[in-house]
């Protein structure tokens, strides 16, 4: 468990680096390349810098909430990762997942806890006693509510095809092929659900093009305007931790998790590998997909402009929810008559 946590923290620090390098590449710049080889030590330098900075409490801030908020924002991303099957120890046993925890209501747990990091944003924004921060917090809550619904409904259709809410069963339901040549991944089985879920996930993570709560040009820094030092660092890391976890969720739900495309469960089981090799191999597969999704996240950030607030709300309430409903209807009809 500690190792997974450590790995996650490492990933979190390096995805920041990755983001800066990729963005530099997209914008035809160099990006951080001075600290260490190709700038690989940059995250450590950043961390030291953050720790050494002065920890400021604004004068009229609500001290307790101001202190509490970064932790609330940081924790959910890490907690929910415990539920994600990042590999399998035994290909023949559907429940032998390489995950910290394998509970029966896995996906619900992820949704439940994942939605809590909003409170970090809202309380942080409120406690700062600053107009911009408050606006950031307000926007975070409105955005959260609007997109959580669409996300949940998109999930329902996934659960209908997987016939389970257990993360591992969802992965297993995606093995095999569709008509012999397309991997039976949910992204192909449920393209509409994928689209809705992806957009909602961007909004949930407050990523561009939906980073309303911090929107620098409008709100200075949004909810974390007043934060400095380690507390700012926690917000920052929390955001990326949520991003990493969300990418892992997307891989698990839509891209078959740790399974190989075109290779059926039986074939994999027939290789007869031991738990260590199986675990490492499936984890490697998972990581490839995972990095691809994370790269996509960064790619989108530096490609699309920020949408306006009302457009965001319209998208959430008037487009995504309806699409998700439609998708449930279609899935149910197909499930009933085919």
């Amino acid at each position: 468990m500690l190792s997974v946590f450590g790995m996650l923290m490492l990933f979190v620090s390096y995805i920041v680096y990755a983001e800066r390098r990729v963005s530099a590449f997209i914008q035809d710049r160099l990006g951080p390349n001075r600290v260490g080889w190709q700038g690989l030590m940059q995250p450590w330098a950043d961390a030291i810098k953050l720790i050494l900075k002065e920890d400021i409490y604004p004068d009229k801030a609500d001290k307790f909430l101001f202190f509490l908020a970064p932790f609330i924002a940081f924790a959910p991303g890490l907690i929910t990762f415990a539920l994600i099957p990042i590999g399998s120890l035994d290909f023949s046993d559907p429940q032998a997942a390489l995950a910290i925890s394998n509970i029966n209501v896995g996906i619900l747990f992820i949704l439940a806890i994942g939605s809590l990091n909003f409170y970090g944003l809202a309380f942080g924004g409120w406690a700062s006693n600053n107009k911009w921060s408050l606006f950031g917090g307000l926007r975070a809550s409105a955005q959260m509510i609007s997109f959580e619904i669409a996300m949940g409904f998109a999930l329902i259709s996934i659960l209908m095809t997987a016939e389970s809410v257990n993360m591992n069963s969802i992965v297993h339901s995606q093995t095999g092929t569709l008509w012999g040549f397309i991997p039976r991944w949910n992204v192909f089985v449920q393209p509409l659900a994928f689209l809705v879920f992806l957009i909602a996930a961007f909004a949930e993570n407050n990523r561009l093009p939906f980073d309303m709560p911090e929107a620098e040009p409008e709100l200075v820094g949004g909810y974390h305007t007043e934060y400095s030092s380690l507390k700012f660092g926690l917000f920052f890391l929390g955001e990326y931790a949520a991003l990493i976890t969300m990418s892992a969720v997307i891989v698990t739900l839509f891209f078959g998790g740790w399974t190989l495309p075109w290779v059926s469960q039986e074939t994999m089981a027939s290789w007869g590998w031991g738990p260590i090799i199986s675990g490492l191999f499936s984890f490697a597969v998972f990581i490839v997909k995972w990095f691809a999704v994370m790269f996509f996240y960064i790619w989108v950030r530096w490609t699309l402009p920020r949408v306006r607030y009302d457009q965001l709300m319209n998208l959430g309430w008037k487009v995504l929810i309806e699409l998700a409903f439609l998708n449930i209807l279609i899935t149910a009809a197909i499930g009933l008559w085919l």
Partner: peptide, 25 residues
């Protein structure tokens, strides 16, 4: 377990969000 998760998801994750929203407003 299902009720437990729904308890958090609906109350902490949705209803209280609106409460906090209104209080902040």
């Amino acid at each position: 377990p299902f009720v437990a998760m729904i308890q958090i998801m609906v109350y902490a994750g949705a209803i209280m969000v609106l409460f906090v929203f209104v209080i902040m407003m």
